Computed example of a mutant assay.
Amino acid sequence: MSVQNEHVELGVLTELVGYHLRRASSTFAGDFARALEGTGMRQVPFGILSVVDANPGINQGAAGRVLGIQRANMVAIINELVDRGWIERKVPAGDRRAFALAMTPAGKAQLAQSLARIREHEEQMLSGFDADDRAQLLSLLARIEAKER
């Protein structure tokens, strides 16, 4: 008999929040990838586009910090987004050491297209949750995230 058909106890894992968060995150990430398949979009670049769209002229260091992206990784991802024509770098007059980031029309279109797919993905993943459940889930997750800051 294969292990798939057997009942296997998880032991102490059933009571560990971190285990369940990791499994839920993995499930969400897999469905997120399927939802955005064929767009060239991934979670981290989507996060950057979202932050840049909400904060025109933000420097790439600040965008990386708010998203928890290491500087070296941020440079590579920004290069990718610039190469795709989704954002542009500008040298602000007041601080020539840091690049200011701005969305391009193509970037705004990509963000909107991706967001529509992500909203469908989240609606499917959270179909058993009402509005209050969703608000509570976001609130609880935000409290955990706040520990990182």
Rank of each mutant, 00 (worst) to 15 (best):
E122P: 02
E15A: 14
R117P: 04
R71I: 09
F129Q: 07
A112G: 03
G128M: 08
L36F: 00
F46I: 01
V17F: 13
R134D: 08
M74C: 13
S114V: 05
E9C: 12
R117S: 03
I118A: 03
S114R: 05
V52K: 00
G85M: 03
L21P: 06
N79R: 15
E148T: 15
G57V: 07
V91R: 11
I118G: 01
S25L: 09
R134E: 13
L21W: 07
G47F: 00
A131Y: 08
L36S: 01
L16A: 09
R65L: 10
L137I: 14
G68F: 01
E122H: 11
K147G: 12
L141T: 12
N59K: 04
G85V: 00
L13F: 10
H20Q: 06
Q60M: 10
T104S: 08
G64Y: 02
E9L: 13
S114G: 13
D130W: 10
E123Y: 00
R96H: 12
E120M: 05
L16M: 13
G94W: 06
Q60F: 04
V44I: 11
E9R: 12
G94C: 01
L49K: 02
L67R: 11
S25Q: 09
V91G: 02
N73F: 00
M74W: 04
V52I: 10
F129K: 05
K90F: 05
D31I: 02
R119I: 06
D95E: 12
D53G: 09
D83W: 05
T104H: 07
A54Y: 05
S25G: 15
L111R: 02
A33Y: 05
V82R: 03
R97W: 11
I78D: 05
L36Q: 03
E122L: 15
N55E: 05
R96Y: 08
N79E: 15
Q43V: 03
F129Y: 15
L115A: 14
G57M: 09
D31N: 06
D130I: 08
V51K: 06
T104F: 05
L141R: 11
A142I: 02
R119F: 05
L140W: 07
G107D: 00
Q113A: 15
F99L: 06
A29G: 07
G94Q: 05
L140N: 12
Q124A: 07
A102K: 12
I144W: 08
R134G: 13
V91I: 14
E120V: 07
A63M: 02
D31H: 10
V52W: 01
F99C: 06
R34T: 03
K108E: 09
S26Q: 12
D53A: 14
D132M: 13
H20R: 10
G107N: 00
E123T: 00
A106G: 02
L111F: 01
L141E: 09
W86H: 04
A33S: 11
D53V: 01
G85A: 03
F129R: 04
M103D: 01
D130K: 09
A131I: 13
R96L: 12
G68I: 00
L10S: 04
N79T: 15
V82W: 00
V52R: 02
D53H: 13
E145R: 15
R143D: 14
P92V: 11
L101G: 08
V8F: 10
N55G: 02
L10G: 08
A35F: 00
